[in-house]
Design a protein around this nucleic acid. Structure first.
Length: 367
DNA sequence: AACCGTGGCAACCGCCCACTG
DNA sequence: CCAGTGGGCGGTTGCCACGGT
């Protein structure tokens, strides 16, 4: 028996002669006929009873993954994809648990589909398929480039810096999801920066420009360069651009700040959701034109998740879940991620990572 | 036409746990 | 309590189709 292969003894001659590999139509027919007449009963005895030279486990897998009459074949629908993504964000690689929520789909099929399609899709959308958080590698690249940008402004004029900005932005400008992630990221960074300003008015130079970054990168560049050139006194402060700003600047920036919404949870979305939210127009249009600057709801969650998300007690639920699972090495689930971002302190620590990385790199001396 | 690289997917492997005698 | 067994599970392998050169 298959099991005996793992029990430490060599397989018997009978076991060695058992067929492996692809199933023939004749074998399938024998298996189906037998199970339809008698049920599968003991899988171990089944191959002998129905005249198959296979091990029972092989028969069981063939039946459950392929021959079962309620198996749904064919491509996964958008709705099924979304369900898989949502469930995976909560359950991780528990394919059987996920499969139990998708009628007619097997764990094996879902697992294969995840590995060959959905994982790549999420990566392309700028989402880490393990944590379901926005990928940070691209943003880190931008932050890592800030000192170089500064140097370029001071030493070579605007052309080289412009090129650098363009290259970096273009790398981020791949699709709706990464654009949304970018908005998300910047909102949170800005909030973190300003929350650390010790009651003084925010004086982050590119505040209103960063605001535009996701919407019109080209406009940003054309706005950013003259302002930075004019400021002349650009200097590092924990890795942030700062400048001596005028009262008018403060007014603008304060207005900008007030219009920002609280940080959103990490992105967890699909193209279908994006499309349904935005149609063919840019998500930036939506985000920027919305008078409240409110980012759209990003998640079309499973029913259970929806129920929880609509509860007024969600924060407490998430926090208690988060507190129980305090192992720093454990895989972050979506609930934990939400908890992180709903919790103010956790929000700071989450985004601080980016800033600390940026600030850990010495700023070039502008002299 | 032949070769090669790649992606998709069915099938298998090895581990694990629950159950039973 | 223990060994044997069934069966579930996640991870991996290998075949095949397809497209590019």
């Amino acid at each position: 028996m298959c099991r005996l292969y793992m029990m430490g003894r060599s397989p018997s001659s009978e076991e060695k002669s058992l067929k492996k590999g692809p199933w023939t139509p004749e074998e399938d027919q024998k298996l189906v006929d037998y199970i339809q007449k008698h049920g599968h009963g003991s899988w171990r005895a089944l191959p002998r009873l129905c005249g198959l030279n296979r091990c029972g486990k092989s028969c069981r897998l063939r039946w459950t993954n392929y021959l079962r009459p309620d198996i749904k074949r064919g491509r996964f629908s958008q709705e099924e994809e979304q369900i898989i993504i949502n469930l995976h964000s909560v359950l991780g690689n528990k394919w059987s648990a996920i499969a139990s929520r998708l009628a007619g789909r097997t764990d094996n099929e879902i697992k294969n589909y995840w590995n060959t399609h959905l994982k790549k899709k999420l990566l392309q959308m700028g989402i880490d398929p393990v944590t379901h958080r926005p990928r940070t590698d691209h943003l880190n690249e931008i932050l890592a480039n800030l000192p170089l940008l500064h140097t370029l402004f001071n030493s070579t004029g605007t052309t080289a810096a412009n090129n650098l900005v363009n290259v970096t932005l273009n790398r981020l400008h791949s699709d709706h999801a990464s654009q949304l992630a970018k908005i998300q990221l910047l909102h949170n960074i800005l909030q973190l920066l300003t929350s650390n300003s010790n009651n003084s008015p925010p004086n982050i130079l590119p505040m209103n420009l960063l605001h535009q970054l996701p919407h019109h990168p080209d406009q940003l560049i054309s706005d950013l360069l003259p302002l930075m050139n004019n400021s002349q006194q650009l200097h590092g402060n924990n890795g942030c651009f700062t400048t001596s700003s005028t009262p008018q600047d403060h007014q603008i920036l304060s207005a900008d700040l007030q219009s920002f919404e609280a940080p959103q949870p990490p992105l967890k979305l699909s193209q279908s959701i994006i499309d349904s939210q935005f149609g063919s127009s840019s998500p930036y249009d939506h985000a920027i034109n919305n008078p409240n600057h409110q980012l759209p709801a990003l998640v079309s969650a499973s029913p259970v998740v929806n129920q929880m998300e609509t509860s007024n007690n969600i924060k407490n639920i998430i926090k208690s879940n988060h507190d129980v699972n305090s192992d720093p090495c454990s895989t972050s689930t979506t609930f934990e991620a939400w908890g992180d971002l709903i919790d103010d302190e956790a929000t700071d620590s989450y985004w601080k990572g980016f800033l600390e990385q940026a600030s850990s790199q010495p700023w070039p001396n502008s002299d």
